[in-house]
Design a protein around this nucleic acid. Structure first.
Lengths: 253, 253
DNA sequence: CGGCCAATTGATTAAACTCAATCTGCGTGG
DNA sequence: CCACGCAGATTGAGTTTAATCAATTGGCCG
């Protein structure tokens, strides 16, 4: 057994003794022992999905919510023509479907990009958490507001940036988000998505995306390997993409 | 005085005796007298802004939340290059900034497109509402989930549709949203935005948008006047834009 | 070795952008 | 009452960006 989740929880010594979600929230506020315990209990029942599994289906009823312990997923919609638009990437520590109590059916699909370990959260647990745990409730509300902001920035990225700038903007977003949960190594980040995924995220054709990515690599802006990417010139990437890190700041109480 | 808000509240006889927000929620669930009263009390302090007023500023602290009683606004971000991306339109009955308790500063700006009447909601009132009024809390949570869905659909629209299809998709979204609050007349809807606004919503240049809009008009798909638009062929518009009305359905309790 | 998935490249076409005018309705001051 | 100015809409011409169609390559696994 010794599941991925356990490894994820324990693999960092001093800085991050918690689950990715606790780590994320701890960056903004000091969680009490009680709250950490509550969070851990909430994340008791884990389930695992292999790479490429769709576990939330656009239009179908939502039954429960999830918290990601490890692995990546995408939130997306398919148009009736078969085209796909990825809304964004779901990383460890992200919450999925916490609106389950208020919306009949899902308005997006979620599929795993890697092997993923999820904690299952019952709808009633969510209501209870919001009643009994003001700090955690604020933390999850902040997560929701943050998701909304990410999606707004995604619209700006697609609507108002050139292909190369969209790439730079997305890489910076992912770097900042991974940084928060301790999954970067300097300017390096692991990226599990394919170029087809990137194209469907950024509203580009696969061919065009491939070419623009190649140009960025040749210009030395990024170094790309099979498993990830190194951002060689943060300043240039920030400038070309007009990335606004203020949108990712923490929450207050 | 006899403010716009009062007129808005009273201007419909049998179908809609409430504020736009109550009207919106009533489409999904029967609100008790108590709940309606609570909502009305919440919306006591109104303020009015003339057309073209920015009242939420990206990056600046949020002080309070709002509920729109009448008029239109846009939620948007400005890139540092000056380009603008409109995230979406804010209509009567929409809530703004209800995440005020959980996010330090705004991640978007809001400006009025018309004269707008707003109810001001204090952050503490929101917390109290979530504690004491489960039905209204669910309604507002549903509104938030719906905003998220609208923004996801906005990404799909910009990322994966042609210019004409983006227009059709947006018009259908607005028609459905206005229909819910009783502000359509058949296939007709009033639209206060300029073509420049539309271009910044749909990720297009003004010139291109103007041409595509002209083509749609010439094809008879829509009839455009100075104040609004008539959707002459819902079926064709739905098909070309792959619009999914399921994303706008009501909530459950 | 064969097959498959992902990445890459070439050639052509189509969509959308930019720059630059012009037009139109409307309100305002002379 | 009319000239002027302005915001918003429209049109023309030329350029750029990105999409499409069609192969080909490279790595990995059975």
């Amino acid at each position: 057994m010794a599941s991925e989740a356990i490894k994820q929880i324990k693999h960092r010594g001093q800085n991050a003794p918690f689950t990715p979600l606790a780590r994320k929230l701890s960056a903004s506020t000091q969680l009490s022992e009680n709250e950490v315990g509550y969070l851990e209990a909430l994340q008791g029942k884990t389930s695992e999905f292999p790479k490429g599994t769709q576990f939330i289906h656009d239009g179908e009823p939502l039954k429960q919510a999830y918290i990601v312990q490890s692995g990546w997923a995408i939130r997306y919609t398919l148009l009736s023509s078969g085209r796909r638009q990825i809304w964004g990437y779901i990383l460890p520590g992200d919450a999925i479907g916490f609106h389950v109590n208020f919306q009949r059916s899902a308005s997006f699909s979620v599929s795993t990009l890697t092997h993923v370990v999820l904690s299952q959260v019952d709808p009633d647990q969510i209501l209870q958490l919001y009643r009994d745990q003001p700090v955690l409730a604020a933390g999850l509300s902040w997560c929701a507001a943050r998701e909304y902001t990410l999606l707004g920035d995604q619209s700006a990225r697609i609507g108002r940036l050139s292909a190369a700038d969209r790439l730079a903007h997305l890489f910076l977003e992912l770097w900042h988000r991974l940084e928060l949960i301790g999954e970067t190594e300097g300017a390096w980040l692991e990226l599990p998505m394919t170029q087809a995924d990137l194209a469907d995220t950024l509203g580009l054709s696969l061919v065009h995306l491939n070419r623009e990515l190649g140009k960025m690599r040749k210009r030395g802006l990024v170094t790309i390997t099979k498993t990830g990417i190194r951002l060689n010139h943060f300043d240039q990437l920030m400038e070309m993409s007009e990335f606004n890190p203020g949108h990712l700041e923490g929450f207050r109480l």
